[in-house]
Each structure stands twice: as structure tokens, then as C-alpha cells.
């Protein structure tokens, strides 16, 4: 696989060292974000450091958004609307969300708004066969299920037994009955000779965008980028192989690293002949442009005020 890592790691400036030292990042990471964002890097890092927004996605298979909002507000939670009628920001919590009766009854899933975008891009329809290639703990999979009112056939794969156990618990709590959960290496999916209308690949990544939730990623080793890109490209190839002609791949990550994002989209276009679908919009959602590539989109914590993410929609040719 050629051109695995093409993106430069610029030398950190004196200011990068200072910021890195103050906030506990590696200077290389700060320098890389400066390369992408210029002087906005300080805004990004400050926003990451103070990010505390919490969102919930209503499980519309069990309750309506209005009824859930009313119930949680009676309990003392304060909810704010988002661009998605079934997602709310929880701006005040009298106690932890996950200990509420409504959570235990499976009426909602706690999920950042940025994680609700990939299923919307996938636009799942009843009767479609859909593959979620790195699925656990199942937030996006169960979102796809509710979007089709459980009428799609969903295959969800993950290699981690622990994460799959967590997914199974979520699926049970949310009461979703149209998901087939498989423990396997997603790269081997083609050997089953099953073809899918759509594939979601929310790829395992270096997770720079979720540092506000997982600060251990502030000091990711550089060698991890290369191994992630190799895995991601193998998963993209696996997704391509199992897509029906004309089928859609939604590729997303939760990192800012260009080689894991735009670099992989270029790989899908140039090496696999996929077409980039760049004319999608989601009412009320205003993502940022990609890094040196048009038609792909990002969220940044200081701009969209969500966790960081990357999104691309690719189509397999009809031939």
C-alpha cells in the first residue's frame, strides 16, 4: 500500500512548546494543528480544555422527543434544542444522566452531537442492508436502526470483546431488534460474500478530536499515526469490496490528523476509483471545510462547539 503517510509534521515553534507545556500536549501535535488552523490553534486548545457539553439522542423507538424532554425537565434537567429534533443538549443536570430512570429504560443515548452526523450522511432506508464496520459500543448503529424504524438489516462488526459486550448491553437497553453483532476483524468481511447497500466506517483513529473526553490522547506517539492509517486503508478497502455497485461509504473519524482523513479519502478516490459525494447538507449543521481537500468536512471544538470529527461520503462506481 503506497503513500501511507504523506502529511508533514512541522517543527514546533517556541510558542508551540509553551502551549504544549501549559496544556500537556506534545509540541508536535500543537505544531501540526497550527499547520491546519494557523493562529486559531490557541482557540482550539482552550476550547478542548474547557469542553463540557453533553448531548443526548432520544431513542425514538421507545419515546417521542417531546415526552422525554418533558419528563427530564420535571426531574430538574434543563434541555436545549439542537438542529436535530431528537437530540438535546443537557445544560443542567441535578444528578448523573445515566442514573436516571429514563436512561435505564432506554429512552436515550448519551452521545456527542458530532457523533450523530455519520448516520445522517448514510441516510439509511428501510430494507437496505447496512454494514457498520467498527461499530461498538453501538451509538451510531442504534441511531441507524431508529432512523429506519428497525426496518433495515444492520450488520455491526467489532473486534473487541469488551466493546461488543458494551454494545450488546446498549442494544438491549435501547431495545433494538434488527442488528446482527459480529466479533471479527472487519478487514476479513469480504470472505463472507455478502454485499451491502451502504457501509459506515467510523474508523479506529488516533482520537485527537476526543481529547476533551480522553486526555491520554494528548501525548499520542507519532508511530501510532502510521499504524492507524494502514489499518484505516485496509478497512476502507474491505468496505469497498463488500459494497454493491453504486453503494455508499460514509467514512468518519474523531481526529484532526490529515493523513487519517483527507489522505484516506484521496486513497479511496485515486486507488479504488470511488467518487466523492460533496453536495450533502444537513439543515442547521455548519461544518468546516477539509484540509486541502474540497467536499469533505470537519468539526472543531472551538468552531462547532462539539468534539472534533471528520466526515466524507464516497460512492462505489456503478460498473
Amino acid at each position: 500500500m503506497k503513500n501511507v503517510v504523506e502529511v508533514a509534521w512541522p517543527n514546533p515553534t517556541k510558542e508551540d512548546f509553551e502551549i504544549a507545556d501549559r496544556y500537556g500536549f506534545t509540541p508536535q501535535l500543537v505544531a501540526r494543528w497550527r499547520m491546519i488552523l494557523g493562529n486559531e490553534v490557541k482557540d482550539l486548545i482552550e476550547a478542548m480544555n474547557s469542553y463540557s457539553r453533553v448531548f443526548i439522542r432520544v431513542n425514538t423507538l421507545k419515546i417521542s422527543p417531546r415526552d422525554l424532554k418533558e419528563r427530564l425537565e420535571k426531574e430538574g434537567f434543563v434541555l436545549k434544542d439542537t438542529f436535530l429534533e431528537y437530540a438535546f443538549e443537557v445544560v443542567k443536570r441535578p444528578y448523573t444522566l445515566s442514573s436516571s430512570r429514563e436512561y435505564l429504560l432506554g429512552y436515550f443515548y448519551i452521545q456527542d452531537l458530532s457523533s450523530m452526523i455519520p448516520p445522517l450522511l448514510l441516510d439509511p432506508k428501510p430494507r437496505e442492508k447496512i454494514l457498520d464496520l467498527a461499530a461498538a459500543p453501538g451509538g451510531k448503529t442504534t441511531h441507524i436502526a431508529q432512523m429506519t424504524n428497525e426496518k433495515a438489516k444492520i450488520v455491526a462488526i467489532d473486534i473487541s470483546k469488551r466493546r461488543l459486550a458494551s454494545m450488546r448491553s446498549n442494544v438491549n437497553r435501547l431495545g433494538v431488534k434488527n442488528i446482527v453483532m459480529i466479533r471479527m476483524d472487519g478487514r476479513k468481511i469480504a470472505s463472507y460474500n455478502v454485499r451491502f447497500d451502504k457501509v459506515l466506517l467510523d474508523a479506529p483513529c488516533t482520537g485527537e478530536g476526543v481529547i476533551p473526553r480522553d486526555p491520554s490522547r494528548k501525548t499520542i506517539k507519532l508511530k501510532e499515526y502510521k499504524s492507524r492509517v494502514t489499518l484505516q486503508r485496509e478497512l476502507i478497502k474491505a468496505a469497498y469490496d463488500v459494497l454493491k455497485p453504486g453503494g455508499l461509504l460514509v467514512y468518519s473519524t474523531c481526529t484532526y490528523a490529515p493523513e487519517e482523513n483527507e489522505g484516506n479519502v484521496k486513497y479511496a478516490i485515486e486507488e479504488l476509483g470511488m467518487e466523492l459525494i460533496d453536495d450533502w447538507t444537513i439543515d442547521g449543521f455548519k461544518p468546516s471545510e477539509g484540509y486541502k481537500l474540497k467536499g469533505v468536512w470537519r468539526t472543531y471544538t472551538h468552531r462547532q462547539r462539539t468534539l472534533g470529527a471528520f466526515y466524507a461520503v464516497l460512492k462505489k462506481s456503478e460498473d
Binding site: 438489516k153 442494544v171 431488534k177 434488527n178 442488528i179 446482527v180 453483532m181 463472507y192
Partner: peptide, 21 residues
């Protein structure tokens, strides 16, 4: 307990779990 039209996928994949326990 699983949606009725998933039987062929269950036979092919021998999954970890399906639908709800």
C-alpha cells in the same frame, strides 16, 4: 429475539449476538 428478515445473515455470520437477548 430478532426481526424476522435477518435469518439468512445469522446463518452466514454465526454472530456474537443478534437483536435483543
Amino acid at each position: 429475539l430478532v426481526k424476522r428478515d435477518l435469518s439468512s445473515l445469522i446463518e452466514i455470520f454465526k454472530p456474537y449476538a443478534v437483536g435483543i437477548t
